[in-house]
Computed example of a mutant assay.
Amino acid sequence: MEKMQDETQGMRRFGRVNWLGLYTLAKREVMRFATVWTQTLLAPLVTAALFLMIFNLAIGPRRGDVMGVPFLTFIAPGILMMTVIQNAFANCSSSIVISKVQGNIVDTLMPPLSGAELVLGYLAGGIARGVVVAVTIGLGLLLVLGIAPAHPLIALVFVVLGAALMGALGIVAGIYAEKFDQMAAITNFIITPLAFLSGTFYSVQALPPVLNEITHMNPIFYLIDGVRFGVIGVSDSSPMLGLAVCGTATLAVSLLAWWMLRSGYRLKA
Rank of each mutant, 00 (worst) to 15 (best):
V204E: 09
Q9V: 03
P112W: 02
M260A: 15
T83N: 10
G60E: 12
A252K: 00
I105P: 15
L142F: 14
G138K: 02
G126T: 10
S198W: 04
R63D: 01
L123T: 01
T192I: 13
I220L: 11
M183F: 15
I220D: 09
E213P: 08
M166C: 14
L169P: 11
A249P: 07
Q205K: 13
L223M: 11
G68D: 12
G130S: 06
P193V: 08
A163C: 08
A249E: 04
T250Y: 09
A244G: 14
G68F: 13
I79K: 01
L139Q: 10
A163V: 05
V17L: 09
D236Y: 11
T108E: 07
Y222E: 02
V227M: 02
L109N: 05
L22I: 00
P219H: 13
S93K: 01
T8G: 03
I186K: 01
W19T: 07
M67Y: 08
K268W: 12
T83S: 14
S99N: 06
W37R: 03
Q205P: 10
Q86A: 13
I85K: 06
A116F: 06
L169Q: 07
G138S: 09
A49C: 07
L143W: 12
V172D: 11
T47S: 11
I214A: 01
R228V: 12
N104A: 01
Q86I: 01
G125K: 08
A252H: 08
